[in-house]
Design a protein around this nucleic acid. Sequence first.
DNA 1: CTAATTTGGTTTCTTAACGCAACTCTATTT
DNA 2: AAATAGAGTTGCGTTAAGAAACCAAATTAG
Lengths: 156, 156
Amino acid sequence: MAKKRFDDSNCSVARALNQVGDWWSLLIVLHAMQGARRFVDFQQELGIAKNILCDRLARLVDNSVLKKVDVGEHGSRFEYRLTEKGRDLFPVVIALLQWGDKWNPAPNDASLDLCDRTTGQSIQTVQVMNTQGEPITVRDVFVPAVPVPGTKQDSA
Amino acid sequence: MAKKRFDDSNCSVARALNQVGDWWSLLIVLHAMQGARRFVDFQQELGIAKNILCDRLARLVDNSVLKKVDVGEHGSRFEYRLTEKGRDLFPVVIALLQWGDKWNPAPNDASLDLCDRTTGQSIQTVQVMNTQGEPITVRDVFVPAVPVPGTKQDSA
DNA sequence: CTAATTTGGTTTCTTAACGCAACTCTATTT
DNA sequence: AAATAGAGTTGCGTTAAGAAACCAAATTAG
């Protein structure tokens, strides 16, 4: 983490990064998407220190990305499940996964390839699209000049 | 940053986060996408400490997300420009931006909405889609059992 | 009933990263 | 010659990350 916080930033990306912008949070969300639910699942799969995991899970719960569910089994058993907000990080995680695959090819193995249940085929590459459904790049976008006073759109 | 590095992880997301998974890097990339090029641009727009900015820019250059261009103007002038790899983070940044907008509404103002140059209209929400072009959620995907070792499928 | 496990955390302590401020260096402007 | 600007670097204090040990409730083993 850093000292500088972006809670009140008027930049959506900054606010988003404030919640999931550290090393572990998105990895935790990814593993949650892949089925991890219990403390030990995350701990073993990620190889993360327990105190850090506690902290990250608590923060993700605070931020409503995960919810903590007491499943009254043997021992103190809790499950951390994705909320709708957490599940909504799917495009972010997938975009990141695809970027990592494309530009930092796996050193030793195949990356995990995700398939759609209904078609059985690999999913598409995540793209930004215009209203016509045509993929666009960063060069195709602009921020409309909003002359409304009081509207701050800071760079972001 | 953290001590734990994921360079050699066989997880694409981990490798991606290794390059742009800190508080500042994606914000720097975002601002670069919005036109920031010079050291002072980033420094003033982001309010980041200069040594941290140096470090982040250098790392992004190392990772080929940005390239440093000497524009021989007055003083020592450099520009940091996005590479193709950097521009390819567009879907990641936009997905994050949209998530931040949706789930952490701006405290005081409208978030900036991005428009496509050719249509003049707002861009679509970034989604994960199957081969049919239908949007899918995390519940629709599965990891096919045991990819053949040595097989690399890039856009996972 | 007691001892050992499992799960989920906390505490301690070391190390590394962040962030401010001040300083450097080169080149340009006054 | 002095001042300004761009792009850093250096020092130093604060904070966060990480490993390993310790803690506590519920469970199973014996």
